[in-house]
Amino acid sequence: MKEKVKTIEIDTPDHGELRFQFAGIGTRMIAYLIDKFIQIGVLLGIVSILAIMLFLAGQMGHFIEILSKAVQSLGLWSIAIAILFYGIASVGYFLFFEYFWNGATPGKKFQKIRVIRKDGLPMSFADSVVRNTLRIIDILGEMYPVGLIVMFCDFHNRRVGDLAAGTLVIEDHETSVLPILRMPAETSETFEVNSLVARMNAEDYVLVAKFLSRRNELDVQHRTQLAENISRRILKRTTGFGADFDHEAFLESIEVLYRGRTREL
């Protein structure tokens, strides 16, 4: 089992290093759906409010009359204008949010992703215009067929707009520390916990920390079994333990001790 996630490393001019994880296609799809729902909701809201206002002002009939006359005189052009208006509203939504909201739209914000330039800098307005104008090609028929194919074929999950504008969509997660739910119980002095901790390596620590942070979700049988397995793994290097040994309390102790030692280092 290899543990590798899709990341990009960007070297900054001051020899720093930025590492970003690409947003997955699924994440981007959900973000787009959320944005779409917001757009449709806002459009419906505006239309409803206008309708209510016209109705209350007694101008609804007059408005419909004007509208039907306009549609009759324009013919098929009226449909083209409506599509154009919808396109501008749709593209404008993304353009506005991505430029003024650090590369994120409400959908992207919800999914904790954002758009950056491939050199790690924020998008310029021109980038945003290119990226979002080409969305028209990506979303052909509102189904995202072209975008889906291109993202599927591109190793960095970029759609046509991203390729043209030189942008990337990255995950914007803040580094989170694995939560430990309880303070450690008193450590049994039967075991030389400190020497055990000194013998632990990073992999042991990750395993213990992951187990402790997720144990409440595990079913009882697997939780007990796993705690025992992990304890065995760590204790195997020195000594054994009795039948009444509290594996979880032991793991809690060594997790905290290991973290403490790492901080000192």
Binding site: K4, G24, G26, T27, M29, I30, K210
Partner: peptide, 25 residues
């Protein structure tokens, strides 16, 4: 495997979809 494999850990719904696309690709 020379290609990047998946990371075994609990995923969100979108994470499941991401993994799906990654494995398919």
């Amino acid at each position: 495997d020379e290609r990047p494999a998946t990371v075994l850990e609990p995923l969100s719904l979108t994470g499941i979809l991401d993994q799906t696309f990654q494995i398919c690709r």
